[in-house]
């Protein structure tokens, strides 16, 4: 098994979280939970000591989509729901980069839901962070695939009549080899989750809860902080290699009754590793020379 980060060049000088922030002013609302995720990400990047030029932050569309502009590194704010193909394409051709993919709950579970299972089962060595604020923020307050049933939004004036999906159980069922849950109100813990995701060789999924103070009320920060359970602290022992226990934690859907931490972790060859085996096998066809390829067209 390869260790993640092994092939990624590190910064020569000590970098701080601040070194990973750009001068661009975020468009996020005052008090937005996304600021906490940005702080956690830059903190984790500084702890990895990867050089900014070897970082690629890629996103879909939504409030979260603006993230790359605020991180010092290479960034790509791409299409709605399409960040995972983009990030996979980059990582498997450039294993020397730290590839961080992110998007909202609508981005990843509505329009982009078709890509999530395939990225998870292929297991490329990327981190995928879902900003799960349970609402469409950028388009100003419509319900999303994770909005609880009954909630009133701009498109559900009489309460949502749809059952929400659960990102964490989906990730496990799809075969993600790392699943964690983080809360943007606890930047240190959140940064630790991102750091663990970076260190994990394979597809690392983080369900992040960054409260949307504009469309989901400003009570969320306070209430989550009061009620959150932190895995493997305060006696909340959890073995992330125990599927049954992991599933039970992943299955929590009420943001006010949730455990945060590493839920599931599994050692499995990455896509890039398997690609290496495949190339070795394919090499037996002959040398990598165009002339020998041409020979197959001779009658």
């Amino acid at each position: 098994m390869a260790t993640a980060l092994a092939g990624i060049p590190r910064a020569e000088t000590k970098l701080s979280a601040k070194d990973f922030k750009t001068d661009l002013k975020p468009i996020w609302c005052p008090g937005c939970g996304d600021f906490g995720v940005l702080a956690a990400l830059t903190k984790a990047l500084s702890e990895v000591q990867v050089a900014p030029e070897n970082v690629a932050v890629m996103t879909g569309i939504g409030c979260a989509g603006r993230l790359p502009g605020y991180v010092n590194g290479y960034g790509f704010n791409a299409l709605h729901g399409r960040v995972l193909p983009l990030a996979t394409g980059l990582k498997l051709t450039r294993p020397d980069l730290l590839v961080f993919a992110a998007g909202g709950d609508g981005d990843g579970l509505a329009i982009g839901a078709g890509h999530f299972p395939h990225a998870a089962r292929r297991n490329p060595d990327i981190t995928y962070l879902m900003f799960d604020n349970q609402v469409y923020g950028l388009t100003k307050g419509q319900f999303s695939p994770t909005t609880p049933m009954g909630d009133v939004t701009t498109t559900t004036r009489f309460g949502s009549i749809e059952s929400p999906v659960n990102p964490a159980t989906l990730a496990m069922a799809y075969g993600a080899s790392f699943v964690a849950r983080a809360f943007s109100g606890n930047v240190n813990h959140h940064a630790e989750m991102i750091l663990e995701a970076f260190r994990h060789p394979g597809f690392a999924f983080i369900q992040s809860i960054p409260p949307c103070v504009t469309f989901r009320g400003n009570e969320q920060f306070k209430t989550i902080r009061e009620r959150a359970r932190w895995l493997n602290t305060d006696g909340n022992d959890h073995d992330p290699s125990d599927w049954g226990a992991a599933w039970e934690i992943a299955n929590q859907t009420d943001i006010y009754d949730m455990s945060f931490g590493i839920i599931w972790r599994q050692a499995r060859p990455t896509y890039e590793e398997r690609l290496g085996f495949l190339r070795e096998k394919a090499g037996k066809r002959g040398p990598a020379e165009l002339d020998s390829v041409l020979d197959q067209f001779r009658p």
Binding site: F76, L79, L84, A87, H115, H118, R279, A288
Partner: peptide, 23 residues
């Protein structure tokens, strides 16, 4: 593969061109 390249069969054509743009 023997040229160090990759053929990726994707989940749909959106992902196909997406991987190309990412690469």
């Amino acid at each position: 593969p023997r040229f160090g390249g990759t053929m990726m069969q994707t989940e749909d054509e959106i992902a196909a061109i997406g991987m190309c743009v990412g690469a």
